[in-house]
Design a protein around this nucleic acid. Structure first.
Lengths: 236, 236
DNA sequence: CGGTTGTTTGAACTGATTCAATCTGTGTGG
DNA sequence: CCACACAGATTGAATCAGTTCAAACAACCG
Protein backbone atom coordinates (compact mmCIF):
# COMPACT_ATOMS: atom_id res chain seq x y z
CA UNK A 1 0.00 0.00 0.00
CA UNK A 2 2.30 2.76 -1.25
CA UNK A 3 1.43 6.22 0.06
CA UNK A 4 2.87 9.35 -1.51
CA UNK A 5 2.53 13.09 -1.02
CA UNK A 6 2.73 14.11 -4.63
CA UNK A 7 1.60 17.27 -6.36
CA UNK A 8 2.78 16.65 -9.90
CA UNK A 9 0.89 18.80 -12.36
CA UNK A 10 0.05 15.85 -14.53
CA UNK A 11 -1.63 13.90 -11.73
CA UNK A 12 -3.60 16.88 -10.44
CA UNK A 13 -4.91 17.66 -13.87
CA UNK A 14 -5.93 14.09 -14.36
CA UNK A 15 -7.90 14.02 -11.11
CA UNK A 16 -9.48 17.33 -12.02
CA UNK A 17 -10.67 15.91 -15.29
CA UNK A 18 -11.99 12.80 -13.61
CA UNK A 19 -14.00 14.93 -11.20
CA UNK A 20 -15.32 17.10 -13.99
CA UNK A 21 -16.38 14.10 -16.00
CA UNK A 22 -18.42 13.19 -12.91
CA UNK A 23 -20.37 16.40 -13.50
CA UNK A 24 -18.71 18.93 -11.21
CA UNK A 25 -18.09 22.51 -12.34
CA UNK A 26 -14.45 23.50 -12.96
CA UNK A 27 -14.19 26.08 -10.18
CA UNK A 28 -15.79 23.72 -7.68
CA UNK A 29 -13.43 20.95 -8.68
CA UNK A 30 -10.53 23.30 -7.97
CA UNK A 31 -11.91 23.97 -4.51
CA UNK A 32 -11.67 20.27 -3.75
CA UNK A 33 -8.24 19.89 -5.30
CA UNK A 34 -6.83 22.76 -3.24
CA UNK A 35 -7.91 20.97 -0.10
CA UNK A 36 -4.96 19.40 1.75
CA UNK A 37 -4.80 15.75 0.76
CA UNK A 38 -2.60 12.88 -0.17
CA UNK A 39 -2.62 10.47 -3.07
CA UNK A 40 -2.70 6.82 -2.09
CA UNK A 41 -2.31 3.73 -4.22
CA UNK A 42 -4.27 0.68 -3.06
CA UNK A 43 -3.68 -2.90 -4.14
CA UNK A 44 -6.72 -5.02 -4.97
CA UNK A 45 -8.14 -7.45 -2.42
CA UNK A 46 -5.86 -6.20 0.35
CA UNK A 47 -7.30 -4.71 3.54
CA UNK A 48 -7.56 -0.94 3.20
CA UNK A 49 -10.21 0.16 5.69
CA UNK A 50 -11.75 -2.37 8.06
CA UNK A 51 -15.42 -2.44 9.06
CA UNK A 52 -16.08 -0.58 12.29
CA UNK A 53 -13.19 1.84 11.98
CA UNK A 54 -13.63 5.63 12.16
CA UNK A 55 -14.16 7.39 8.83
CA UNK A 56 -13.25 11.02 9.27
CA UNK A 57 -11.93 11.28 5.76
CA UNK A 58 -13.12 12.03 2.25
CA UNK A 59 -11.99 9.71 -0.49
CA UNK A 60 -12.13 10.32 -4.22
CA UNK A 61 -11.27 7.69 -6.75
CA UNK A 62 -8.75 8.90 -9.31
CA UNK A 63 -8.34 5.59 -11.10
CA UNK A 64 -9.38 2.02 -10.45
CA UNK A 65 -12.47 0.84 -8.57
CA UNK A 66 -13.25 0.86 -4.86
CA UNK A 67 -15.73 -1.38 -3.07
CA UNK A 68 -17.58 -1.07 0.22
CA UNK A 69 -18.18 -4.44 1.84
CA UNK A 70 -19.77 -6.02 4.88
CA UNK A 71 -19.32 -9.49 6.34
CA UNK A 72 -22.06 -11.66 7.77
CA UNK A 73 -21.87 -13.85 10.87
CA UNK A 74 -20.37 -16.81 9.02
CA UNK A 75 -17.69 -14.63 7.49
CA UNK A 76 -19.17 -14.43 4.01
CA UNK A 77 -18.30 -11.16 2.37
CA UNK A 78 -20.86 -9.08 0.53
CA UNK A 79 -20.01 -6.01 -1.52
CA UNK A 80 -22.63 -3.30 -0.97
CA UNK A 81 -21.37 -0.50 -3.22
CA UNK A 82 -18.80 0.39 -5.86
CA UNK A 83 -17.01 3.66 -6.53
CA UNK A 84 -15.67 4.40 -9.99
CA UNK A 85 -13.27 7.21 -10.95
CA UNK A 86 -14.71 10.62 -10.11
CA UNK A 87 -16.91 9.13 -7.42
CA UNK A 88 -16.01 9.12 -3.75
CA UNK A 89 -16.76 8.13 -0.19
CA UNK A 90 -17.91 10.85 2.17
CA UNK A 91 -16.99 11.08 5.84
CA UNK A 92 -19.33 9.88 8.58
CA UNK A 93 -19.52 11.13 12.14
CA UNK A 94 -19.60 7.70 13.70
CA UNK A 95 -17.56 4.67 12.73
CA UNK A 96 -18.62 3.08 9.47
CA UNK A 97 -20.04 -0.42 9.53
CA UNK A 98 -18.57 -1.26 6.16
CA UNK A 99 -14.99 -1.89 5.11
CA UNK A 100 -13.28 -0.60 2.00
CA UNK A 101 -11.24 -2.58 -0.50
CA UNK A 102 -10.04 -2.00 -4.01
CA UNK A 103 -11.41 -4.15 -6.82
CA UNK A 104 -8.38 -3.42 -8.99
CA UNK A 105 -5.27 -1.37 -8.21
CA UNK A 106 -6.61 2.12 -7.53
CA UNK A 107 -5.31 5.61 -6.96
CA UNK A 108 -7.20 7.62 -4.39
CA UNK A 109 -7.28 11.17 -3.15
CA UNK A 110 -7.69 11.12 0.60
CA UNK A 111 -8.55 14.29 2.52
CA UNK A 112 -9.53 15.03 6.10
CA UNK A 113 -13.11 15.53 7.15
CA UNK A 114 -12.24 18.76 8.98
CA UNK A 115 -10.78 20.22 5.79
CA UNK A 116 -13.66 19.03 3.64
CA UNK A 117 -16.76 19.97 5.64
CA UNK A 118 -15.99 23.72 5.91
CA UNK A 119 -15.59 23.92 2.15
CA UNK A 120 -18.93 22.19 1.82
CA UNK A 121 -20.61 24.60 4.25
CA UNK A 122 -19.24 27.60 2.38
CA UNK A 123 -20.42 26.53 -1.05
CA UNK A 124 -24.08 25.61 -1.47
CA UNK A 125 -23.39 24.68 -5.08
CA UNK A 126 -20.97 22.05 -3.91
CA UNK A 127 -23.55 20.90 -1.39
CA UNK A 128 -26.02 20.43 -4.18
CA UNK A 129 -23.50 18.53 -6.26
CA UNK A 130 -22.89 16.03 -3.50
CA UNK A 131 -26.61 15.88 -2.75
CA UNK A 132 -27.12 14.67 -6.30
CA UNK A 133 -24.24 12.20 -6.07
CA UNK A 134 -25.73 10.76 -2.90
CA UNK A 135 -29.11 10.37 -4.57
CA UNK A 136 -27.49 8.60 -7.48
CA UNK A 137 -25.82 6.19 -5.09
CA UNK A 138 -29.11 5.65 -3.31
CA UNK A 139 -30.73 4.90 -6.63
CA UNK A 140 -28.02 2.38 -7.51
CA UNK A 141 -28.42 0.79 -4.10
CA UNK A 142 -32.13 0.28 -4.69
CA UNK A 143 -31.42 -1.32 -8.04
CA UNK A 144 -28.93 -3.67 -6.38
CA UNK A 145 -31.57 -4.66 -3.84
CA UNK A 146 -33.95 -5.60 -6.62
CA UNK A 147 -31.10 -7.42 -8.28
CA UNK A 148 -30.32 -9.57 -5.26
CA UNK A 149 -33.90 -9.99 -4.16
CA UNK A 150 -35.85 -10.59 -7.31
CA UNK A 151 -33.69 -11.61 -10.27
CA UNK A 152 -32.28 -15.04 -11.04
CA UNK A 153 -28.59 -15.63 -11.02
CA UNK A 154 -28.08 -15.07 -14.76
CA UNK A 155 -29.93 -11.76 -14.70
CA UNK A 156 -27.98 -10.67 -11.65
CA UNK A 157 -24.62 -11.19 -13.30
CA UNK A 158 -25.81 -9.72 -16.59
CA UNK A 159 -27.14 -6.67 -14.77
CA UNK A 160 -23.87 -6.07 -12.99
CA UNK A 161 -21.97 -6.29 -16.26
CA UNK A 162 -24.34 -3.85 -17.97
CA UNK A 163 -24.15 -1.39 -15.10
CA UNK A 164 -20.38 -1.65 -15.00
CA UNK A 165 -20.08 -1.06 -18.73
CA UNK A 166 -22.13 2.12 -18.41
CA UNK A 167 -20.40 3.39 -15.27
CA UNK A 168 -16.98 2.80 -16.83
CA UNK A 169 -18.08 4.54 -20.04
CA UNK A 170 -16.87 1.43 -21.77
CA UNK A 171 -18.91 2.06 -24.89
CA UNK A 172 -21.79 -0.19 -25.83
CA UNK A 173 -20.93 -3.81 -26.37
CA UNK A 174 -17.45 -3.61 -24.96
CA UNK A 175 -16.10 -4.09 -21.47
CA UNK A 176 -12.80 -5.02 -19.92
CA UNK A 177 -14.24 -6.92 -17.02
CA UNK A 178 -12.55 -5.62 -13.86
CA UNK A 179 -13.95 -8.30 -11.54
CA UNK A 180 -12.81 -11.74 -10.50
CA UNK A 181 -15.61 -14.28 -10.42
CA UNK A 182 -15.40 -14.24 -6.64
CA UNK A 183 -16.03 -10.48 -6.65
CA UNK A 184 -19.02 -10.88 -8.97
CA UNK A 185 -20.29 -13.48 -6.54
CA UNK A 186 -19.76 -11.10 -3.60
CA UNK A 187 -21.75 -8.40 -5.36
CA UNK A 188 -24.59 -10.55 -6.64
CA UNK A 189 -24.93 -12.73 -3.55
CA UNK A 190 -23.85 -16.06 -4.99
CA UNK A 191 -20.90 -18.43 -4.95
CA UNK A 192 -18.02 -18.09 -7.36
CA UNK A 193 -18.78 -21.59 -8.61
CA UNK A 194 -22.20 -20.54 -9.78
CA UNK A 195 -20.94 -17.31 -11.30
CA UNK A 196 -18.57 -19.41 -13.34
CA UNK A 197 -21.40 -21.55 -14.64
CA UNK A 198 -23.51 -18.49 -15.39
CA UNK A 199 -20.74 -16.86 -17.40
CA UNK A 200 -20.13 -20.10 -19.29
CA UNK A 201 -23.83 -20.29 -20.09
CA UNK A 202 -23.94 -16.73 -21.33
CA UNK A 203 -21.03 -17.45 -23.62
CA UNK A 204 -22.65 -20.67 -24.83
CA UNK A 205 -25.83 -18.73 -25.62
CA UNK A 206 -23.83 -16.22 -27.63
CA UNK A 207 -24.53 -13.32 -25.29
CA UNK A 208 -20.89 -12.56 -24.63
CA UNK A 209 -17.46 -13.58 -25.85
CA UNK A 210 -14.64 -13.98 -23.36
CA UNK A 211 -10.89 -13.90 -23.69
CA UNK A 212 -9.30 -13.87 -20.24
CA UNK A 213 -10.56 -10.80 -18.46
CA UNK A 214 -11.92 -9.19 -21.58
CA UNK A 215 -15.66 -9.50 -22.12
CA UNK A 216 -17.33 -8.50 -25.34
CA UNK A 217 -21.09 -8.11 -25.49
CA UNK A 218 -21.98 -9.72 -28.78
CA UNK A 219 -25.63 -8.82 -28.37
CA UNK A 220 -26.04 -5.70 -26.24
CA UNK A 221 -29.80 -5.47 -26.78
CA UNK A 222 -30.35 -9.07 -25.77
CA UNK A 223 -27.95 -8.61 -22.87
CA UNK A 224 -30.01 -5.69 -21.59
CA UNK A 225 -33.18 -7.73 -21.95
CA UNK A 226 -31.75 -10.68 -20.03
CA UNK A 227 -30.47 -8.34 -17.33
CA UNK A 228 -33.69 -6.33 -17.24
CA UNK A 229 -31.30 -3.38 -17.36
CA UNK A 230 -32.99 0.02 -17.63
CA UNK A 231 -30.23 2.57 -17.21
CA UNK A 232 -32.45 5.51 -16.21
CA UNK A 233 -31.56 4.88 -12.59
CA UNK A 234 -27.96 5.86 -13.39
CA UNK A 235 -28.94 9.11 -15.10
CA UNK A 236 -29.70 11.11 -11.96
CA UNK B 1 -56.94 8.41 -0.35
CA UNK B 2 -58.41 11.17 1.78
CA UNK B 3 -56.53 14.45 1.60
CA UNK B 4 -57.13 17.24 4.08
CA UNK B 5 -55.74 20.69 4.67
CA UNK B 6 -55.77 20.65 8.43
CA UNK B 7 -53.92 22.78 10.94
CA UNK B 8 -55.34 21.55 14.19
CA UNK B 9 -53.03 22.29 17.09
CA UNK B 10 -53.14 18.71 18.28
CA UNK B 11 -51.97 17.26 15.02
CA UNK B 12 -49.20 19.81 14.53
CA UNK B 13 -47.84 19.19 17.96
CA UNK B 14 -47.86 15.49 17.41
CA UNK B 15 -45.84 15.81 14.20
CA UNK B 16 -43.43 18.14 15.96
CA UNK B 17 -42.85 15.55 18.63
CA UNK B 18 -42.37 12.82 16.08
CA UNK B 19 -39.75 14.89 14.30
CA UNK B 20 -37.99 15.70 17.53
CA UNK B 21 -37.89 12.08 18.56
CA UNK B 22 -36.08 11.55 15.24
CA UNK B 23 -33.34 13.76 16.63
CA UNK B 24 -34.10 17.20 15.26
CA UNK B 25 -33.74 20.33 17.41
CA UNK B 26 -36.98 22.09 18.44
CA UNK B 27 -36.39 25.31 16.52
CA UNK B 28 -35.40 23.41 13.39
CA UNK B 29 -38.49 21.28 13.65
CA UNK B 30 -40.58 24.45 13.77
CA UNK B 31 -38.90 25.69 10.60
CA UNK B 32 -40.15 22.58 8.83
CA UNK B 33 -43.61 22.76 10.34
CA UNK B 34 -44.03 26.39 9.26
CA UNK B 35 -43.39 25.34 5.69
CA UNK B 36 -46.60 25.29 3.60
CA UNK B 37 -47.81 21.71 3.50
CA UNK B 38 -50.80 19.45 3.65
CA UNK B 39 -51.57 16.39 5.72
CA UNK B 40 -52.49 13.32 3.71
CA UNK B 41 -53.84 10.00 4.87
CA UNK B 42 -52.77 7.00 2.80
CA UNK B 43 -54.40 3.60 2.82
CA UNK B 44 -52.13 0.53 2.86
CA UNK B 45 -51.34 -1.32 -0.39
CA UNK B 46 -53.05 1.27 -2.53
CA UNK B 47 -51.11 3.12 -5.23
CA UNK B 48 -49.83 6.40 -3.81
CA UNK B 49 -46.86 7.37 -5.99
CA UNK B 50 -46.01 5.32 -9.06
CA UNK B 51 -42.47 4.49 -10.20
CA UNK B 52 -41.16 6.93 -12.77
CA UNK B 53 -43.25 9.88 -11.65
CA UNK B 54 -41.74 13.28 -10.74
CA UNK B 55 -40.89 13.77 -7.05
CA UNK B 56 -40.72 17.48 -6.39
CA UNK B 57 -42.06 17.07 -2.87
CA UNK B 58 -40.86 16.39 0.64
CA UNK B 59 -42.71 13.80 2.62
CA UNK B 60 -42.55 13.23 6.36
CA UNK B 61 -44.24 10.33 8.06
CA UNK B 62 -46.40 11.39 10.97
CA UNK B 63 -47.81 7.99 11.73
CA UNK B 64 -47.79 4.60 10.04
CA UNK B 65 -45.11 3.20 7.76
CA UNK B 66 -44.21 4.07 4.17
CA UNK B 67 -42.39 1.83 1.70
CA UNK B 68 -40.40 2.55 -1.44
CA UNK B 69 -40.71 -0.23 -3.99
CA UNK B 70 -39.51 -1.23 -7.44
CA UNK B 71 -40.86 -3.85 -9.80
CA UNK B 72 -38.78 -6.21 -11.92
CA UNK B 73 -39.44 -7.25 -15.50
CA UNK B 74 -41.80 -10.07 -14.55
CA UNK B 75 -43.82 -7.78 -12.34
CA UNK B 76 -42.51 -8.99 -9.02
CA UNK B 77 -42.49 -6.23 -6.46
CA UNK B 78 -39.52 -5.59 -4.21
CA UNK B 79 -39.54 -3.15 -1.31
CA UNK B 80 -36.24 -1.27 -1.16
CA UNK B 81 -36.75 1.00 1.85
CA UNK B 82 -39.07 1.77 4.76
CA UNK B 83 -39.88 5.07 6.43
CA UNK B 84 -41.10 5.12 10.01
CA UNK B 85 -42.64 8.09 11.84
CA UNK B 86 -40.26 11.06 11.96
CA UNK B 87 -38.47 9.83 8.86
CA UNK B 88 -39.15 11.15 5.38
CA UNK B 89 -38.58 11.08 1.67
CA UNK B 90 -36.60 13.93 0.16
CA UNK B 91 -37.27 15.46 -3.26
CA UNK B 92 -35.25 14.51 -6.32
CA UNK B 93 -34.55 16.63 -9.37
CA UNK B 94 -35.36 13.91 -11.86
CA UNK B 95 -38.24 11.45 -11.73
CA UNK B 96 -37.81 8.74 -9.11
CA UNK B 97 -37.44 5.16 -10.25
CA UNK B 98 -39.24 3.84 -7.21
CA UNK B 99 -42.89 3.97 -6.24
CA UNK B 100 -44.30 4.72 -2.80
CA UNK B 101 -46.93 2.78 -0.92
CA UNK B 102 -48.04 2.62 2.68
CA UNK B 103 -47.48 -0.55 4.69
CA UNK B 104 -50.26 0.35 7.10
CA UNK B 105 -52.60 3.34 7.10
CA UNK B 106 -50.32 6.35 7.38
CA UNK B 107 -50.55 10.07 7.91
CA UNK B 108 -48.05 12.11 5.95
CA UNK B 109 -46.93 15.70 5.81
CA UNK B 110 -46.38 16.62 2.19
CA UNK B 111 -44.57 19.82 1.21
CA UNK B 112 -43.29 21.25 -2.02
CA UNK B 113 -39.67 21.02 -3.05
CA UNK B 114 -39.51 24.76 -3.81
CA UNK B 115 -40.62 25.56 -0.29
CA UNK B 116 -38.30 23.03 1.30
CA UNK B 117 -34.97 23.60 -0.48
CA UNK B 118 -34.64 27.33 0.39
CA UNK B 119 -35.12 26.52 4.06
CA UNK B 120 -32.44 23.90 3.73
CA UNK B 121 -30.03 26.33 2.03
CA UNK B 122 -30.58 28.91 4.74
CA UNK B 123 -29.90 26.59 7.66
CA UNK B 124 -26.65 24.62 7.64
CA UNK B 125 -27.74 22.91 10.83
CA UNK B 126 -30.76 21.53 9.07
CA UNK B 127 -28.50 20.46 6.21
CA UNK B 128 -26.40 18.52 8.64
CA UNK B 129 -29.44 16.92 10.22
CA UNK B 130 -30.61 15.59 6.84
CA UNK B 131 -27.08 14.62 5.94
CA UNK B 132 -27.07 12.35 8.96
CA UNK B 133 -30.51 10.97 8.14
CA UNK B 134 -29.36 10.14 4.64
CA UNK B 135 -26.31 8.35 5.97
CA UNK B 136 -28.49 6.34 8.30
CA UNK B 137 -30.68 5.31 5.40
CA UNK B 138 -27.60 4.40 3.40
CA UNK B 139 -26.41 2.29 6.29
CA UNK B 140 -29.75 0.50 6.51
CA UNK B 141 -29.67 -0.07 2.75
CA UNK B 142 -26.29 -1.75 3.03
CA UNK B 143 -27.57 -4.00 5.79
CA UNK B 144 -30.54 -4.95 3.63
CA UNK B 145 -28.20 -5.86 0.80
CA UNK B 146 -26.29 -8.21 3.07
CA UNK B 147 -29.61 -9.55 4.27
CA UNK B 148 -30.83 -10.41 0.76
CA UNK B 149 -27.46 -11.49 -0.56
CA UNK B 150 -25.93 -13.53 2.19
CA UNK B 151 -28.42 -14.70 4.79
CA UNK B 152 -30.78 -17.65 4.61
CA UNK B 153 -34.49 -17.15 4.60
CA UNK B 154 -34.96 -17.57 8.35
CA UNK B 155 -32.23 -15.07 9.17
CA UNK B 156 -33.67 -12.61 6.64
CA UNK B 157 -37.10 -12.63 8.24
CA UNK B 158 -35.67 -12.58 11.75
CA UNK B 159 -33.45 -9.64 10.85
CA UNK B 160 -36.35 -7.65 9.45
CA UNK B 161 -38.36 -8.26 12.60
CA UNK B 162 -35.46 -7.21 14.83
CA UNK B 163 -34.83 -4.06 12.82
CA UNK B 164 -38.50 -3.20 12.82
CA UNK B 165 -38.79 -3.67 16.57
CA UNK B 166 -35.90 -1.25 17.09
CA UNK B 167 -37.07 1.30 14.55
CA UNK B 168 -40.56 1.31 16.02
CA UNK B 169 -39.15 1.65 19.56
CA UNK B 170 -41.26 -1.36 20.36
CA UNK B 171 -39.27 -2.26 23.44
CA UNK B 172 -37.17 -5.42 23.55
CA UNK B 173 -39.01 -8.64 23.01
CA UNK B 174 -42.24 -7.07 21.88
CA UNK B 175 -43.55 -6.09 18.46
CA UNK B 176 -46.90 -5.54 16.88
CA UNK B 177 -45.97 -6.85 13.49
CA UNK B 178 -47.10 -4.26 10.94
CA UNK B 179 -46.42 -6.42 7.86
CA UNK B 180 -48.44 -8.94 5.92
CA UNK B 181 -46.48 -12.05 4.99
CA UNK B 182 -46.51 -10.84 1.40
CA UNK B 183 -44.83 -7.61 2.45
CA UNK B 184 -42.20 -9.48 4.43
CA UNK B 185 -41.61 -11.52 1.28
CA UNK B 186 -41.31 -8.35 -0.80
CA UNK B 187 -38.72 -6.95 1.58
CA UNK B 188 -36.67 -10.09 2.04
CA UNK B 189 -36.84 -11.30 -1.55
CA UNK B 190 -38.88 -14.46 -1.10
CA UNK B 191 -42.37 -15.78 -1.67
CA UNK B 192 -45.13 -15.34 0.85
CA UNK B 193 -45.48 -19.11 0.99
CA UNK B 194 -41.96 -19.46 2.27
CA UNK B 195 -42.31 -16.59 4.72
CA UNK B 196 -45.27 -18.40 6.17
CA UNK B 197 -43.22 -21.56 6.68
CA UNK B 198 -40.36 -19.58 8.19
CA UNK B 199 -42.64 -17.88 10.71
CA UNK B 200 -44.24 -21.20 11.60
CA UNK B 201 -40.76 -22.67 12.13
CA UNK B 202 -39.68 -19.81 14.34
CA UNK B 203 -42.76 -20.31 16.46
CA UNK B 204 -42.19 -24.07 16.61
CA UNK B 205 -38.61 -23.44 17.78
CA UNK B 206 -39.88 -21.17 20.52
CA UNK B 207 -38.27 -18.04 19.09
CA UNK B 208 -41.50 -16.12 18.86
CA UNK B 209 -45.11 -16.40 19.89
CA UNK B 210 -47.84 -15.23 17.52
CA UNK B 211 -51.39 -14.17 18.07
CA UNK B 212 -52.79 -12.66 14.89
CA UNK B 213 -50.61 -9.68 14.02
CA UNK B 214 -48.96 -9.53 17.39
CA UNK B 215 -45.52 -11.07 17.63
CA UNK B 216 -43.74 -11.58 20.89
CA UNK B 217 -40.03 -12.36 20.96
CA UNK B 218 -39.81 -15.03 23.60
CA UNK B 219 -36.01 -15.14 23.29
CA UNK B 220 -34.67 -11.78 22.13
CA UNK B 221 -31.02 -12.80 22.54
CA UNK B 222 -31.49 -15.95 20.52
CA UNK B 223 -33.53 -14.00 17.99
CA UNK B 224 -30.69 -11.54 17.51
CA UNK B 225 -28.26 -14.41 17.12
CA UNK B 226 -30.38 -16.14 14.49
CA UNK B 227 -30.84 -12.86 12.64
CA UNK B 228 -27.18 -11.89 13.01
CA UNK B 229 -28.63 -8.57 14.09
CA UNK B 230 -26.07 -6.02 15.26
CA UNK B 231 -27.96 -2.79 15.74
CA UNK B 232 -24.95 -0.43 15.53
CA UNK B 233 -25.84 0.30 11.92
CA UNK B 234 -29.03 1.98 13.14
CA UNK B 235 -27.27 4.18 15.66
CA UNK B 236 -25.87 6.73 13.23
C1' DC C 1 -74.20 -12.92 4.77
C1' DG C 2 -70.91 -12.64 0.95
C1' DG C 3 -66.76 -10.76 -0.68
C1' DT C 4 -62.08 -9.73 -0.06
C1' DT C 5 -57.69 -10.19 1.79
C1' DG C 6 -54.43 -12.78 4.08
C1' DT C 7 -52.73 -17.31 5.98
C1' DT C 8 -51.74 -22.17 5.89
C1' DT C 9 -50.57 -26.70 3.95
C1' DG C 10 -48.98 -30.34 0.53
C1' DA C 11 -46.41 -32.23 -3.39
C1' DA C 12 -43.37 -31.77 -7.17
C1' DC C 13 -39.77 -29.40 -8.97
C1' DT C 14 -35.53 -26.63 -9.78
C1' DG C 15 -31.84 -23.51 -9.19
C1' DA C 16 -28.07 -22.81 -6.45
C1' DT C 17 -24.85 -24.50 -2.86
C1' DT C 18 -21.32 -27.40 -1.13
C1' DC C 19 -17.35 -30.01 -1.36
C1' DA C 20 -13.66 -31.64 -3.74
C1' DA C 21 -10.65 -32.13 -7.49
C1' DT C 22 -8.40 -30.39 -11.53
C1' DC C 23 -6.82 -27.09 -14.69
C1' DT C 24 -4.81 -22.54 -16.33
C1' DG C 25 -2.27 -18.36 -16.22
C1' DT C 26 1.01 -15.30 -14.18
C1' DG C 27 4.76 -13.86 -11.65
C1' DT C 28 9.14 -14.90 -9.00
C1' DG C 29 13.51 -16.50 -7.97
C1' DG C 30 17.19 -19.62 -9.06
C1' DC D 1 14.49 -20.47 -19.23
C1' DC D 2 12.68 -23.61 -16.04
C1' DA D 3 10.58 -24.84 -11.56
C1' DC D 4 7.62 -23.54 -8.32
C1' DA D 5 3.98 -21.13 -5.96
C1' DC D 6 -0.26 -18.97 -5.94
C1' DA D 7 -4.56 -17.08 -7.38
C1' DG D 8 -8.26 -17.74 -10.08
C1' DA D 9 -11.22 -20.57 -13.23
C1' DT D 10 -13.51 -24.85 -14.35
C1' DT D 11 -15.98 -29.16 -13.75
C1' DG D 12 -18.75 -33.03 -11.47
C1' DA D 13 -21.81 -35.21 -8.07
C1' DA D 14 -24.70 -34.96 -4.16
C1' DT D 15 -27.68 -32.24 -1.56
C1' DC D 16 -30.94 -28.86 -0.09
C1' DA D 17 -33.36 -24.47 0.33
C1' DG D 18 -36.78 -22.12 -1.73
C1' DT D 19 -40.22 -21.82 -5.62
C1' DT D 20 -44.38 -23.00 -7.96
C1' DC D 21 -48.93 -24.40 -8.31
C1' DA D 22 -53.09 -25.48 -6.33
C1' DA D 23 -56.35 -25.77 -2.86
C1' DA D 24 -58.34 -24.97 1.60
C1' DC D 25 -58.91 -22.22 5.57
C1' DA D 26 -59.44 -18.01 8.62
C1' DA D 27 -60.35 -13.28 9.65
C1' DC D 28 -62.35 -9.11 8.76
C1' DC D 29 -65.69 -5.72 7.14
C1' DG D 30 -69.52 -3.42 5.13
Amino acid sequence: MASRHVKSARQERSLRETLMSAGIEPNLADLLLDMPHRIVTVEPRRPFRDPGSPRSEVIFVRSGILSKFKTDSSGRRHIVALRFPGEGILPTEATAEYGIQAIVRSELMVGKSEDFLPILDAHPKLQRFFWRLIQRNESIGYEWLVNCGRRDSTARVAHLLCETAVRMNAGEGRLTNPFTQQQIADITGQTSVNVNRVLANMERQGLIRRKGRHIEFTDWTEMRRVANFQPQYLAI
